[in-house]
Design a protein around this nucleic acid. Structure first.
Ligand code: ZN
Ligand code: ZN
Ligand code: ZN
Ligand code: ZN
Lengths: 127, 127
DNA sequence: TTTCCTACTGCAATTAAGTTGCATTAAACA
DNA sequence: TGTTTAATGCAACTTAATTGCAGTAGGAAA
């Protein structure tokens, strides 16, 4: 958990995440802020924000890293929890889902964490 | 679903998958067969085997593609199903898990498919 | 306010996974 | 055995992510 300086670039990224609860891919952020900061800076700030548990990340189906608000193993009320992530196959938007997924006991395996990626249509894309 | 010729390289890869039920990363395969075939060939054969539903794939935590025996949306008895994948954080081995994970109904979202990656320790690595 | 420390940034170069184009090779089948 | 065309190898390329380093700017302390 590193100390984070409130630099202009950090503020810009935090503002972006505070706009909505969506999970944003690094690529989108690099593209969006290509006039404001270098891609290296984007990667490094996201890294630090995740270390500080201000953001959490997951890897989507295409192998791209996505970030969203909050710590990974707490829910929206800060209770420990693993939550699934949703990805709309139509519009590409992604978000954390405030539901709990039950993992059955599996003999011979000790499960410590899990990544759940649900793919489908968001409410704006159901045709 | 393309027709697949039984070339030497295809046979080599199939033999590897028939050795065990593990999910193997493309990188491992490229490395293992670097004397026997080009990496392009590995990628293309895996592609075809997945098209033909002989293998299925998923993306692991590091964004690396992994392949395992069987079609993705059928279980070991060929019944339609989504199964989770396991990754041992200790030895790095990965496998399909023959259990069913229940996805709760989520208002405003239509879920079509899911990827479940469970991380922990396999039976050989519990200390 | 000014000074100082060092976290942070930008840039260029590099790594690594995966893809593409094309000439050549070898399965498969009549 | 010859013909067809799927499949291969190789080189070049694309894209996401990382690294090294010199220079910049937070922010604490004087
Ligand atoms: Zn949508
Ligand atoms: Zn989340
Ligand atoms: Zn293990
Ligand atoms: Zn599987």
């Amino acid at each position: 958990m590193s100390i984070i300086r409130k630099t202009k670039t950090v503020k810009l990224l935090l503002k972006e995440f505070n706009k909505s609860n969506e999970a944003i891919s690094v690529i989108e952020l690099i593209d969006k802020f290509n006039k404001k900061m270098d891609k290296t800076t984007v990667y490094r700030i996201l890294d630090r924000l995740e270390d500080s548990r201000i953001l959490h990340s997951f890897v989507d189906q295409d192998g791209l890293k996505r970030y969203a608000k909050g710590a990974s193993n707490t829910d929206f009320n800060n209770e420990p929890e693993i939550h699934p992530h949703f990805l709309c196959e139509d519009c590409g938007t992604s978000s954390c889902l405030p539901v709990t997924i039950q993992i059955p006991d599996i003999p011979n395996y000790t499960i410590k964490s899990a990544e759940h990626l649900l793919i489908g249509r968001c409410k704006d894309c159901v045709s």
